[in-house]
Structure formats: C-alpha cells, structure tokens
C-alpha cells in the first residue's frame, strides 16, 4: 500500500516581517520553520529552524550567504553551514536540514508543507 502525504500552501507571515538578507522563525503547528529573505539574490528560502548538530532552535538567527553559487545559512552556535537549497551540510558533516518551497504573493510569504506537519 502506498501512503501519499498531502501538501498544503500555508500563509507564514507578511514579507515586511522578514528582515532583508536575514531570517525569522515562524510557528507552524508544533513546527518551527526558518524563513530567509535573501534580498541580495531576490530569493526566498525556508528550512527547519533546528540545527541538527546540537539540536538548537537557532537557524533563523544565523547569517546567510553563499559558497560559490550555493546559498547557505550558518548556525549561530558553531557556524556549521547548510545549503538553503538542498539542506545539505556544507561544513563536511553528515547531518542535513529539511527545506521547504516558498512563494511570495501580494506581500505575504507562503510555505508548502506536509499536512501532517500542521
């Protein structure tokens, strides 16, 4: 039997709540999701807020930037960096983070998440 998970676009926050070239954390049900307004690239990203290294809810407070072409975020605790696109750890660790599709419509930020995460 195949179980399909249903995905939903949900409203996260108004765009002006997210600082330029930085992130904020939104509460989605019991989940914490980090949203990044990468103004410099004109792009938006969303990832889990928890850094998998020491399980700290902190990625939204991290600095974002790029390694080559790859957009990334650095955890404020130990500066582990993760790709904002693939969630892969760029500092050579095994751990990775979940990423979520983001859309900006009419001044609001929307996230595509699994319905069971609601």
């Amino acid at each position: 039997m195949v179980e399909t998970t249903k995905q939903h676009w949900i409203l996260a926050c108004p765009t002006h709540d997210v600082p330029e070239n930085g992130g904020v954390c939104v509460k989605v049900g019991d989940q914490q999701i980090a949203i990044f307004n990468f103004t410099r690239r004109g792009e938006w990203y969303a990832t889990q807020n928890e850094c998998p290294h020491r399980h700290q809810m902190a990625l939204s407070r991290g600095m974002i930037g790029s390694a080559g072409e790859e957009p990334k975020v650095a955890c404020p605790f130990h500066k582990k960096t993760f790709s904002l696109k693939s969630g892969e750890c760029l500092s050579g660790d095994e751990c990775s983070i979940a990423t979520y599709p983001v859309e900006v419509r009419e001044g609001n930020v929307f996230l595509l998440i699994d319905s069971h995460e609601l």
Binding site: R40, R41, M63, G65, S66, G68, A74, T81
Partner: peptide, 10 residues
C-alpha cells in the same frame, strides 16, 4: 562578489 558569508559579514 557573491552574496557574502559568515566570515566577511561580521
């Protein structure tokens, strides 16, 4: 060039 990082930003 590029978009900066946790080294050059601070």
């Amino acid at each position: 060039n590029g978009d900066g990082c946790e080294t050059c930003k601070p």
